[in-house]
Nucleic acid binder design. Structure first.
Length: 292
DNA sequence: GGCCAGGCGCGTA
DNA sequence: TACGCGCATGGC
């Protein structure tokens, strides 16, 4: 194998790489001395934003035509087109103004689903720790340049289905351990087939994912949005719920039914992007404007 | 030391 | 359909 550092540069517009990689959709990116280091598929990758209008990428070994990275970063998506699909209300304007350039990534579906099974009632830092442990223990080592921290691929369905609950608990999964193991086994048995889910309409895709242990509506929506490309999926976690209540229903108590209807009708065909802006906005304005 | 974290599953009203 | 609770673990 020809182990060389290969490099490419992608022209981008309205792309905030740092905000995107740290926005709670992917959990394997670390800021090192020479840029953001992570793993995509079996490849170690380093990314750097050059000024505002380019992303420089390096990998170690065969990079091929780099389409795998264009897909992951979604560099061809026009942010203008995304923002044009948003509602024009004040909360959305404020959310976009707070972080223009925030993007959605397109991750591998199994890794994305498994990552979010690990995420319930955990802070982002802890999710990163759990996933790092899983990769180190059950993944395969990646080729990395000399002097760079070791890196591992995300564990396969097959490998995690063979992991015992005790082994998973050692990765700090806690009560999520049987969920992750159970989901891996069900996928291995083809009781649920992720390749088929990709071609379903949103509601059916969600229903199918919810048949997996540890996967409810929120985690299903995260996987559908970040791992399958369903742009209308709108994951509601505690932060997004907080944003919706404070920004759209102040001093009211919308019932769950009403809230779901609002979400499905208000945010348009790219609601998932809108959700990501609201998530980032409410999390970063904590402590400001007297809001708790 | 108490509260909270990119929730889910299950029991109950 | 809508709550309430337990479930591990760690950051603040």
């Amino acid at each position: 194998m020809d182990n060389d550092l290969e490099r490419a540069v992608f022209a981008v517009k309205d792309y905030d790489l740092a905000a995107t990689l740290t926005s709670g959709q992917a959990f394997r990116w670390r800021l090192a001395a020479n840029g953001w280091e992570g793993v995509i598929g079996q490849r170690w990758v380093r990314l750097r934003q050059q000024r505002g209008d380019a992303i420089e990428a390096e990998t170690f070994g065969e990079a091929g035509d780099w389409q795998w990275l264009r897909d992951y970063l979604q560099v061809r998506v026009s942010l203008d087109a995304v923002l044009a699909a948003f509602p024009t209300d004040e909360p959305m304007k404020a959310a976009v103004a707070s972080c223009r350039g925030l993007r959605l990534l397109r991750q591998e579906s199994w890794e994305c689903l498994a990552s979010f099974i690990c995420s319930s009632t955990k802070q982002i830092v802890q999710i990163q720790q759990i996933i790092a442990l899983l990769c180190e223990r059950f993944g395969e080592p990646c080729a990395v340049p000399p002097g760079v921290a070791p890196a591992w691929s995300f564990p396969t369905i097959e490998r995690l289905s063979r992991a015992s609950e005790a082994e998973l608990r050692q990765c700090k999964l806690g009560f999520r351990a049987p969920y992750l193991a159970g989901t891996a086994r069900k996928l291995l048995d083809r009781a649920v087939d992720l390749n088929r889910v990709a071609n379903f309409p949103l509601a059916e895709a969600r229903e199918e994912l919810c048949r997996l242990p540890g996967v409810g509506r929120k985690i299903a929506d995260c996987a559908l949005l970040f791992g399958f490309g369903f742009e209308k999926a709108f994951p509601v976690d505690v932060w997004v719920m907080r944003a919706l209540r404070q920004l759209y229903f102040p001093r009211r108590r919308p019932k769950p039914r009403r809230l779901r209807h609002f979400i499905e009708t208000h945010f348009g065909p790219r609601a998932g992007y809108a959700q990501q802006y609201l998530f980032h906005y409410i999390r970063t304005r904590r402590g400001q404007e007297g809001l708790s």
